[in-house]
Design a protein around this nucleic acid. Structure first.
Lengths: 263, 263
DNA sequence: CACACATACTCGTATAGACGAGTGGGCAAG
DNA sequence: CTTGCCCACTCGTCTATACGAGTATGTGTG
């Protein structure tokens, strides 16, 4: 037998309302969460408790939970309960993150920054290979057919937060350290500059959308968490695109920050 | 009686798989959509047809649909059917959209740009009033207590795509044309410069998340569509923040584009 | 011809029940 | 005391059924 819910925590249903019962329940839970009656990481009443409290069927309660899950407010754990989803620490990406001065040190920007923030960074699933350029990448790089692709995934404290693929024209990258798993200090941008491609500027395109099932797996995303899709193109001083980087980020782990001149 | 489904359109279930039936059905529908067997705006088989095709109960089929809805792939219309969600035309926001030269003309940037793109722009629900600054706005504007808030919603071809609130310190905005519903040619940035606050640069912070129920209503969002939350702060040449603009955009209607110097 | 209505189809909401599987605590045997 | 098992509780999956409500289409009536 489930213990009765603390009275006052949740209200009653309004049978005269034309709002669906499961929506009313979701509304009440959402409000309780917003008001802090259920804190981050805290367990919500179980399905059985809500069934009893509201006098509805279990499916109706589950329906309410599924609304809140879609909003990214809660997540269910099999065998444990439904919990208020804690907000993970966010990673701030500043618009000067590719400034030349940041390339001096040996370690990658990701590692340096995460260490500074006190979290444990990790990079894995590195894959470096030549492949056929997709239509989009080919267009962005100026009609190249094949490219060098560098894939990697970034983790903070064991949690995957982003995965990225860099595409470079073969005539630039083939046979250089860029084609090695470890591109050396300063990363591939430092290597590009050593190869005579002095970087002039970057263009970034940002979209947000719900993740594909693949992305859910790779980033271990909770339901109700969108992804930020960022496509960056690097141009050298001659105006030639020398790299396209396609990045998919867990949206709840990032804030992007840009500075624009008012020119 | 429902007509039988064209054979070959969808496969069979694998009873030996440990993947849940409703996931298998969702997988098959997703793949069919990805392969273009169901085009944009096209109607998927009805629940009844899928019930018959797979030999499962209706709730199982609905469960599959709800997965695809959460992914933003399809949307249901009461009394009509379930349809592949068409991708709306996207609005590109370039990083030079606040360049001074764009402020010369009389009409707002939104109107000009939409006209050029051949769509019908509209701005509504304008509200201009003084109010208490939220904690966040206050911090960004440098500890002001009260602000002038300008709220408006933007529509393209009748569809709401974004709503935005500008906050300005009272000592700058009160009694000026900025406090009027129509701020005049070039918008409030032009007025700010006339008032002696020459703009130096902007800072933009970008997040993506699922919308609140309010935002779903205001932007008439389909389920499975995230929002892009953009917070822009405008600084004058003396380094003072003179405006904070809080914008919530339908993520399926926008691509943000930025240029960064490689400095 | 025009309009109202019946009808069949669609998805939306809700119930009641069943079994499965992950988790954790308590209890009994060693 | 430690180990292992059982049990209670949790959410996950699935069935079967019922009625409501929005949409479209035909059909018959005026």
């Amino acid at each position: 037998m489930s213990p009765a819910l603390p009275s006052g925590l949740l209200g009653d249903l309004d049978p005269t309302s034309d709002r669906a019962v499961f929506r009313q329940i979701a509304d009440q839970l959402r409000e309780a969460i917003d008001r802090g009656r259920f804190g981050e990481g805290e367990k919500l009443p179980s399905e059985a408790e809500l069934v009893e409290h509201y006098g509805v069927s279990r499916m109706t309660v589950r329906n309410s939970f599924s609304i809140l899950q879609g909003e990214g407010l809660v997540h269910a754990e099999h065998g444990k309960g439904v919990f208020v989803r804690p907000r993970p620490p966010v990673r701030r990406l500043a618009s000067d993150r590719f400034a030349r001065r940041h390339r001096e040190q040996g370690k990658s920007a990701f590692i340096v920054e995460a260490d500074a923030a006190g979290s444990h960074p990790q990079v894995d699933s590195l894959e470096v290979k030549e492949e056929k350029a997709s239509q989009d990448v080919s267009t962005r790089l100026g009609s190249v057919r094949r490219v060098l692709a560098r894939r990697r995934r970034y983790l903070l404290d064991g949690r995957p937060v982003e995965f990225a693929t860099s595409y470079l024209p073969l005539d630039i990258a083939r046979g250089t350290q860029i084609a090695e798993p470890n591109p050396g200090p300063g990363g591939i941008y430092a290597r590009l500059e050593e190869l005579g491609h002095r970087l002039d500027h970057f263009e970034e395109e940002i979209r947000a959308r719900m993740p594909s099932p693949d992305e859910v797996k790779t980033l271990r995303l909770a339901s109700g968490v969108p992804v930020i899709h960022l496509i960056r193109t690097a141009f050298d001083t001659e105006g030639r695109p020398v790299e396209v980087c396609d990045t998919v980020m867990a949206a709840d782990a990032y804030v992007l920050s840009y500075q624009l001149p008012a020119t």
